Computed example of a mutant assay.
Amino acid sequence: MSQQRRPSRDRTTAKRSDPRERLLKAAVDVFGRYGFDGASTRMLADAAGVNLQAIPYYFGGKEGLYIAAAEHIGTLISAHVTELREMVHGRLQEADLEGRGIETAEARQLLTRIAHTMAALFVSDESEPWARFLIREQMEPTEAFERVYEGVMKPMLEVTGRLVGIIIGEDPDTNHVKLRTITLLGGVMVFRMARAAVLAQLGWAGFGKSEAEEIRAIAAELVASLHREARHET
Protein backbone atom coordinates (compact mmCIF):
# COMPACT_ATOMS: atom_id res chain seq x y z
CA MET A 1 0.00 0.00 0.00
CA SER A 2 2.77 2.46 0.90
CA GLN A 3 4.47 1.82 -2.44
CA GLN A 4 1.25 2.73 -4.28
CA ARG A 5 0.92 6.06 -2.45
CA ARG A 6 4.53 7.14 -2.82
CA PRO A 7 4.37 8.28 -6.49
CA SER A 8 1.66 10.75 -5.53
CA ARG A 9 3.88 12.26 -2.81
CA ASP A 10 6.81 12.37 -5.19
CA ARG A 11 4.78 14.27 -7.80
CA THR A 12 3.65 16.76 -5.18
CA THR A 13 7.22 17.30 -4.03
CA ALA A 14 8.41 17.70 -7.60
CA LYS A 15 5.70 20.26 -8.29
CA ARG A 16 6.63 22.30 -5.23
CA SER A 17 10.29 22.26 -6.20
CA ASP A 18 9.72 23.04 -9.89
CA PRO A 19 12.56 25.44 -10.76
CA ARG A 20 10.47 27.28 -13.34
CA GLU A 21 7.74 28.05 -10.83
CA ARG A 22 10.29 29.07 -8.21
CA LEU A 23 11.93 31.42 -10.69
CA LEU A 24 8.59 33.06 -11.53
CA LYS A 25 7.74 33.61 -7.88
CA ALA A 26 11.20 34.96 -7.11
CA ALA A 27 11.20 37.18 -10.20
CA VAL A 28 7.96 38.91 -9.20
CA ASP A 29 9.48 39.78 -5.83
CA VAL A 30 13.02 40.66 -6.95
CA PHE A 31 12.00 42.70 -10.00
CA GLY A 32 9.39 44.46 -7.89
CA ARG A 33 11.98 45.46 -5.30
CA TYR A 34 14.90 46.35 -7.56
CA GLY A 35 13.48 46.89 -11.04
CA PHE A 36 14.69 45.26 -14.21
CA ASP A 37 18.08 47.01 -14.25
CA GLY A 38 18.73 46.59 -10.53
CA ALA A 39 17.98 42.87 -10.45
CA SER A 40 20.90 40.70 -11.57
CA THR A 41 20.51 37.17 -12.87
CA ARG A 42 22.53 36.01 -9.86
CA MET A 43 20.06 37.68 -7.49
CA LEU A 44 17.16 36.05 -9.31
CA ALA A 45 18.73 32.61 -9.33
CA ASP A 46 19.71 32.82 -5.66
CA ALA A 47 16.24 33.98 -4.62
CA ALA A 48 14.71 31.02 -6.47
CA GLY A 49 17.32 28.58 -5.21
CA VAL A 50 18.21 27.42 -8.73
CA ASN A 51 21.29 27.18 -10.91
CA LEU A 52 22.11 30.34 -12.85
CA GLN A 53 21.66 28.45 -16.12
CA ALA A 54 18.00 27.81 -15.29
CA ILE A 55 17.12 31.36 -16.40
CA PRO A 56 18.23 31.00 -20.04
CA TYR A 57 17.06 27.38 -20.06
CA TYR A 58 13.45 28.18 -19.10
CA PHE A 59 13.05 31.78 -20.25
CA GLY A 60 15.80 32.54 -22.76
CA GLY A 61 17.34 35.15 -20.48
CA LYS A 62 16.58 37.91 -18.00
CA GLU A 63 14.20 39.79 -20.30
CA GLY A 64 12.21 36.66 -21.02
CA LEU A 65 11.92 36.01 -17.29
CA TYR A 66 10.71 39.57 -16.74
CA ILE A 67 7.94 39.20 -19.32
CA ALA A 68 7.02 35.79 -17.94
CA ALA A 69 6.82 37.28 -14.43
CA ALA A 70 4.33 39.87 -15.67
CA GLU A 71 2.24 37.17 -17.32
CA HIS A 72 2.44 35.17 -14.09
CA ILE A 73 1.02 38.14 -12.18
CA GLY A 74 -1.78 38.35 -14.71
CA THR A 75 -2.56 34.68 -14.17
CA LEU A 76 -2.60 35.09 -10.40
CA ILE A 77 -4.91 38.11 -10.56
CA SER A 78 -7.16 36.32 -13.04
CA ALA A 79 -7.61 33.48 -10.57
CA HIS A 80 -9.35 35.98 -8.28
CA VAL A 81 -11.42 37.99 -10.76
CA THR A 82 -12.06 36.02 -13.96
CA GLU A 83 -15.03 33.99 -12.73
CA LEU A 84 -16.89 37.08 -11.56
CA ARG A 85 -15.89 39.12 -14.61
CA GLU A 86 -17.10 36.41 -16.98
CA MET A 87 -20.36 36.06 -15.07
CA VAL A 88 -21.01 39.79 -15.35
CA HIS A 89 -19.99 39.80 -19.01
CA GLY A 90 -22.37 36.92 -19.70
CA ARG A 91 -25.21 38.69 -17.91
CA LEU A 92 -24.60 41.83 -19.97
CA GLN A 93 -24.62 39.83 -23.20
CA GLU A 94 -27.79 38.03 -22.15
CA ALA A 95 -29.53 41.32 -21.44
CA ASP A 96 -28.37 42.73 -24.78
CA LEU A 97 -29.80 39.72 -26.63
CA GLU A 98 -33.08 40.13 -24.80
CA GLY A 99 -33.15 43.72 -26.03
CA ARG A 100 -33.99 45.25 -22.67
CA GLY A 101 -30.64 45.76 -20.99
CA ILE A 102 -29.87 45.53 -17.28
CA GLU A 103 -31.79 47.56 -14.75
CA THR A 104 -29.88 50.10 -12.69
CA ALA A 105 -30.45 48.18 -9.43
CA GLU A 106 -28.93 45.00 -10.87
CA ALA A 107 -26.00 46.92 -12.37
CA ARG A 108 -25.32 48.48 -8.98
CA GLN A 109 -25.46 45.07 -7.29
CA LEU A 110 -23.02 43.54 -9.79
CA LEU A 111 -20.69 46.52 -9.54
CA THR A 112 -20.69 46.24 -5.75
CA ARG A 113 -19.63 42.59 -6.06
CA ILE A 114 -16.75 43.64 -8.29
CA ALA A 115 -15.70 46.39 -5.86
CA HIS A 116 -15.81 43.94 -2.94
CA THR A 117 -13.72 41.39 -4.86
CA MET A 118 -11.12 43.97 -5.82
CA ALA A 119 -10.97 45.35 -2.29
CA ALA A 120 -10.39 41.89 -0.81
CA LEU A 121 -7.62 41.27 -3.32
CA PHE A 122 -5.85 44.57 -2.74
CA VAL A 123 -5.75 44.33 1.05
CA SER A 124 -4.47 40.75 0.97
CA ASP A 125 -0.80 39.98 1.65
CA GLU A 126 -0.78 37.96 -1.57
CA SER A 127 -1.06 41.10 -3.70
CA GLU A 128 1.92 42.89 -2.11
CA PRO A 129 4.68 41.61 -4.44
CA TRP A 130 2.43 42.05 -7.47
CA ALA A 131 1.82 45.68 -6.55
CA ARG A 132 5.52 46.52 -6.31
CA PHE A 133 6.10 45.05 -9.77
CA LEU A 134 3.07 46.75 -11.33
CA ILE A 135 3.74 50.15 -9.78
CA ARG A 136 7.13 50.19 -11.50
CA GLU A 137 5.41 49.31 -14.77
CA GLN A 138 2.87 52.09 -14.28
CA MET A 139 5.70 54.59 -13.90
CA GLU A 140 7.77 53.31 -16.82
CA PRO A 141 5.63 50.91 -18.88
CA THR A 142 7.26 48.21 -20.97
CA GLU A 143 5.98 45.20 -22.86
CA ALA A 144 5.31 43.64 -19.47
CA PHE A 145 2.66 46.27 -18.76
CA GLU A 146 0.99 45.58 -22.10
CA ARG A 147 0.73 41.88 -21.24
CA VAL A 148 -0.98 42.57 -17.89
CA TYR A 149 -3.14 45.38 -19.27
CA GLU A 150 -4.46 43.41 -22.22
CA GLY A 151 -4.89 40.20 -20.26
CA VAL A 152 -6.42 41.48 -17.02
CA MET A 153 -6.83 45.23 -16.65
CA LYS A 154 -8.57 46.06 -19.92
CA PRO A 155 -11.22 43.30 -19.71
CA MET A 156 -12.06 44.28 -16.12
CA LEU A 157 -12.22 47.99 -16.98
CA GLU A 158 -14.52 47.28 -19.92
CA VAL A 159 -16.97 45.17 -17.91
CA THR A 160 -16.91 47.63 -15.01
CA GLY A 161 -17.38 50.52 -17.43
CA ARG A 162 -20.50 48.91 -18.85
CA LEU A 163 -22.02 48.79 -15.38
CA VAL A 164 -20.99 52.36 -14.56
CA GLY A 165 -22.54 53.52 -17.83
CA ILE A 166 -25.83 51.82 -16.99
CA ILE A 167 -25.92 53.36 -13.51
CA ILE A 168 -25.18 56.93 -14.59
CA GLY A 169 -27.11 56.60 -17.85
CA GLU A 170 -24.29 57.31 -20.28
CA ASP A 171 -22.49 55.60 -23.13
CA PRO A 172 -19.70 53.45 -21.62
CA ASP A 173 -17.41 54.37 -24.52
CA THR A 174 -17.30 58.05 -23.53
CA ASN A 175 -14.32 59.43 -21.70
CA HIS A 176 -16.56 60.59 -18.89
CA VAL A 177 -17.68 57.04 -18.08
CA LYS A 178 -14.15 55.73 -18.50
CA LEU A 179 -12.89 58.34 -16.05
CA ARG A 180 -15.65 57.51 -13.56
CA THR A 181 -14.73 53.82 -13.87
CA ILE A 182 -11.03 54.44 -13.31
CA THR A 183 -11.81 56.70 -10.36
CA LEU A 184 -14.05 54.05 -8.81
CA LEU A 185 -11.47 51.27 -9.08
CA GLY A 186 -8.73 53.67 -8.04
CA GLY A 187 -10.65 54.35 -4.85
CA VAL A 188 -10.29 50.66 -4.02
CA MET A 189 -6.75 50.19 -5.32
CA VAL A 190 -5.46 52.94 -3.06
CA PHE A 191 -5.56 50.51 -0.13
CA ARG A 192 -2.73 48.59 -1.79
CA MET A 193 -0.92 51.24 -3.80
CA ALA A 194 -0.85 53.74 -0.90
CA ARG A 195 -0.91 51.16 1.89
CA ALA A 196 1.59 52.93 4.16
CA ALA A 197 -0.28 56.25 3.99
CA VAL A 198 -3.62 54.52 4.61
CA LEU A 199 -2.33 52.67 7.68
CA ALA A 200 -0.63 55.79 9.06
CA GLN A 201 -3.68 57.98 8.57
CA LEU A 202 -6.06 55.49 10.15
CA GLY A 203 -3.71 54.35 12.89
CA TRP A 204 -4.05 50.72 11.81
CA ALA A 205 -1.31 48.13 12.28
CA GLY A 206 -2.47 46.22 9.22
CA PHE A 207 -5.49 44.93 7.36
CA GLY A 208 -7.16 42.44 9.66
CA LYS A 209 -10.71 41.16 9.50
CA SER A 210 -12.33 44.27 11.00
CA GLU A 211 -10.28 46.62 8.81
CA ALA A 212 -11.17 44.59 5.71
CA GLU A 213 -14.86 44.86 6.59
CA GLU A 214 -14.58 48.64 6.87
CA ILE A 215 -12.94 48.75 3.45
CA ARG A 216 -15.70 46.56 1.99
CA ALA A 217 -18.24 49.02 3.34
CA ILE A 218 -16.38 51.94 1.76
CA ALA A 219 -16.21 50.09 -1.57
CA ALA A 220 -20.00 49.70 -1.46
CA GLU A 221 -20.37 53.40 -0.64
CA LEU A 222 -18.26 54.31 -3.67
CA VAL A 223 -20.66 52.36 -5.87
CA ALA A 224 -23.69 53.89 -4.14
CA SER A 225 -22.31 57.37 -4.86
CA LEU A 226 -22.71 56.82 -8.60
CA HIS A 227 -25.91 58.36 -9.92
CA ARG A 228 -27.36 59.92 -13.03
CA GLU A 229 -26.44 63.55 -13.51
CA ALA A 230 -28.55 66.15 -15.24
CA ARG A 231 -26.80 67.38 -18.37
CA HIS A 232 -27.75 70.92 -19.36
CA GLU A 233 -27.37 72.13 -22.89
CA THR A 234 -25.45 75.37 -23.27
Score class of each variant (00 low, 15 high):
Leu92Val: 03
Ala205Phe: 12
Ala194Asp: 14
His232Tyr: 14
Met193Thr: 10
Gly101His: 10
Ile166Lys: 07
Gln109Val: 06
Gln53Arg: 14
Asp37Asn: 08
Gln53Tyr: 11
His227Cys: 05
Arg20Gly: 10
Thr181Gly: 05
Leu84Tyr: 02
Gly49Tyr: 03
Ser78Trp: 03
Met139Trp: 06
Leu84Asp: 06
Ala120Thr: 10
Gly169Ala: 07
Arg5His: 08
Val148Ala: 10
His176Tyr: 13
Gln109Ala: 14
Arg42Met: 11
Glu140Asn: 13
Phe122Ala: 12
Tyr58Asn: 11
Ala119Trp: 00
Met118His: 12
Arg216Cys: 07
Asp173Lys: 10
Val223Asn: 12
Leu92Lys: 05
Ala26Lys: 05
Arg22Leu: 15
Arg216Tyr: 08
Leu24Asn: 06
Thr12Gln: 15
Val30Pro: 11
Val177Thr: 01
Phe36Met: 06
Thr142Lys: 02
Ser40Thr: 14
Arg180Ile: 01
Gly203Ile: 01
Ile102Ala: 03
Ala217Met: 12
Ala45Val: 05
Phe36Gln: 04
Gly169Ser: 08
Leu222Met: 12
Leu65Pro: 02
His232Phe: 12
Lys62Asn: 09
Asp171Phe: 03
Gly165Ile: 00
Asp18Glu: 13
Gly203Trp: 00
Ala47Gln: 15
Trp204Ala: 06
Glu103Arg: 03
Ala14Asn: 14
Glu106Cys: 03
Phe36Tyr: 15
Ala14Trp: 04
Tyr66Val: 00
Phe191Thr: 00
Tyr57Phe: 14
Glu128Lys: 13
Ile218Lys: 11
Phe31Ala: 08
Ala220Trp: 01
Ile218Pro: 06
Val223Ser: 13
Ser2Phe: 06
Gln93Pro: 00
Leu134Asp: 08
Gly74Gln: 06
Tyr34Leu: 15
Glu143Asp: 09
Leu199Asn: 02
Val198Ser: 06
Val50Ser: 09
Thr174Asp: 09
Leu44Asn: 03
His89Ala: 09
Pro19Ala: 12
Leu52Pro: 08
Arg11Val: 02
His116Ser: 11
Tyr66Lys: 04
Arg33Asp: 15
Val81Asn: 14
Asp173Ile: 07
Ala194Thr: 07
Arg20Thr: 05
Arg5Gln: 14
Thr104Pro: 01
Asp96Val: 00
Asp171Tyr: 11
Glu98Trp: 05
Met87Ile: 03
Val159Met: 08
Pro129Gly: 14
Arg132Ile: 00
Ala120Arg: 08
